[in-house]
């Protein structure tokens, strides 16, 4: 019984959201407000159940984990935003989160986005027995990377052979890459649409198996 109700509710809200394709209307507005409100309420419950309770309240009640009072206090400082005279205190947790985020993120970014990428671009473009199309692919990879990097030079005018032609080739390479990504992602989206149509015609209307 509950399953049937769930399917009906799901189908109704799917259609309600799809009605936006026609125009913004009260049915869409109902679905929009419900999904925003329910998702927020759900997140609050989940946060309490998955974060606050097992990682703060229970260890504190069990005793011994007094160090947890520091993050708890930092978290509580956010609430000072509601009292204008001490609202400045909320900047401390913000500063802490920003600083930690940047500090932790820097070596990770340096490793994965710079060094690993650099290593991947430093390839032998020809090896014994390699087919010609792979050699061509490797040459395009190396020269394309260099051209794309030239495009992202901001402190030089994009004029002349090196910066002018290089950046033009670079933007072409970037756009070709985007075209491939676009096609690939659209295929993924189409499969999502197919999934929804299968839900409506199969689970809901039973018109297809």
């Amino acid at each position: 019984m509950y399953e049937i109700i769930g399917i009906w509710v799901g189908a109704f809200f799917t259609l309600a959201i799809y009605s936006f394709l026609y125009k913004e209307n009260p049915v869409y507005r109902l679905a929009e407000h419900l999904v925003v409100g329910i998702s927020l309420g759900y997140t609050m419950a989940i946060t309490y159940d998955v974060v606050l309770k097992p990682r703060l309240i229970e260890p504190l009640l069990a005793g011994g984990s007094w160090i947890l009072l520091i993050p708890a206090l930092l978290g509580l400082l956010y609430i000072t935003r509601f009292i204008s005279s001490i609202a400045w205190l909320s900047r401390y947790p913000i500063a802490f989160v920003l600083g930690t985020g940047m500090g932790v993120g820097f070596p990770l970014t340096m490793k994965s986005n710079v060094l690993r990428q650099l290593e991947a671009a430093m390839i032998p473009f020809y090896q014994e027995g390699m087919p010609w199309h792979m050699v061509l692919g490797n040459v395009v990879l190396v020269l394309g990377t260099l051209a794309a990097l030239i495009y992202f030079f901001f402190s030089k005018p994009h004029k002349g052979f090196f910066f002018g032609t290089g950046s033009r080739i670079g933007i072409w390479i970037i756009m070709l890459g985007f075209g491939a990504t676009f096609g690939f992602t659209v295929m993924g989206r189409i499969s999502l649409l197919i999934g929804r149509i299968q839900y409506l015609l199969g689970d809901w209307l039973h018109l297809i198996e």
């Binding site: 959201i17 936006f20 913004e24 869409y28 507005r29 679905a31 929009e32 999904v35 925003v36 409100g37 329910i38 998702s39 927020l40 759900y42 997140t43």
Partner: peptide, 13 residues
């Protein structure tokens, strides 16, 4: 809201 598509629905509205 922190739900990805609920956020989109809200902003679109």
């Amino acid at each position: 809201t922190d739900s990805q598509f609920a956020f989109v629905a809200g902003v679109n509205g």
